[in-house]
């Protein structure tokens, strides 16, 4: 099988690349820095019997994404699935802090995924088969003072994947969406968090194990689902009070 991983050089993307290579799937890996891609390609090909292609694409840049999707050398028609383990954060992601970075955050976390999906859907429709896996964040459960555009993009992504599921419910196009709690990635490495960080390796194994299941939407780790549910029950009036209290 052939899979495309968007955001493959680190964190969950990297672990997904290893989990899929171990099962001898061929991969197209996309990330920003060619040096990271060269390293991961070499390691995977040395360890597993797999064919890896790599492309340097800046997912925060609309033009870079469009240039890649218009590249005629890439045989998108051979793809059996596409995974989007991508997340971009910024220290300046607060109401007045972002300026020029706002577009990049929305591009990387949401619009680039929409562009890739637009490209791949007609191919999957033609084959009447295909897998699309997206990754949201627990941060999208509630508005916040920090990481505002990140969480807004992830909330948009959640809604987008719900729409994809609704659109392809009766087809063989399989839409999967994971809402992730704290993970042991570099985004969270130097953060003091109140709850434990889950392993990206374990998550990658779970994603690969679930790939045959139809149209799933899951929280990972699972208990974040409960937290998210309780948050959704709190009236916004109370939430406003909580914000005031935190201030």
């Amino acid at each position: 099988m052939n899979y495309l991983i968007v955001g493959a050089s680190s964190g969950l993307g990297r672990d997904l690349a290893y989990a899929l290579s171990k099962k001898t799937h061929n991969l197209i890996l996309i990330s920003r820095d060619i040096r990271d891609l060269v390293a991961i390609k070499s390691d995977l090909e040395n360890r597993f019997k797999t064919k890896i292609s790599t492309y340097s694409v800046d997912l925060a840049s609309k033009t870079s994404v469009i240039a890649f999707l218009d590249n005629r050398e890439i045989e998108f028609s051979l793809l059996d699935g596409i995974l989007f383990p991508i997340g971009m954060m910024s220290d300046n992601d607060f109401i007045t802090g972002l300026n020029s970075k706002a577009e990049q955050i929305v591009n990387a976390n949401f619009l680039s995924i929409v562009k890739f999906t637009e490209k791949i859907i007609p191919i999957f429709k033609k084959k009447n088969n295909g897998l699309i896996v997206g990754f949201g964040s627990i941060a999208s459960s509630l508005g916040r003072r920090k990481n505002i555009l990140y969480s807004a993009s992830k909330r948009a992504l959640n809604s987008y994947f719900e729409s994809l599921t609704a659109s392809f419910e009766n087809s063989h196009i399989n839409i999967q969406f994971y809402i992730l709690g704290y993970l042991d990635t570099n985004l969270a490495f130097d953060e003091k968090l109140s709850l434990p960080k889950a392993s990206t390796k374990q998550l990658a194994l779970e994603v690969v194990k679930n790939m045959k299941k139809n149209n799933i939407k899951k929280y990972y780790p699972i208990w974040w689902g409960l937290i998210s549910y309780f948050i959704s029950l709190i009236p916004f009036v109370v939430i406003k009070k909580i914000f005031k209290f935190i201030k």
């Binding site: 680190s10 990297r14 040096r35 990271d36 490495f189």
Partner: peptide, 28 residues
């Protein structure tokens, strides 16, 4: 960036340090 208390294996030295874990070449 947060501080972490760290101790050498022989327990002779315990200090607070800053720690970062690069996983991309540009992060180095």
């Amino acid at each position: 960036m947060f501080k972490k208390k760290i101790t050498s294996l022989d327990k002779s030295t315990t200090v607070d340090i800053f720690i970062k874990r690069p996983d991309k070449y540009r992060e180095i």
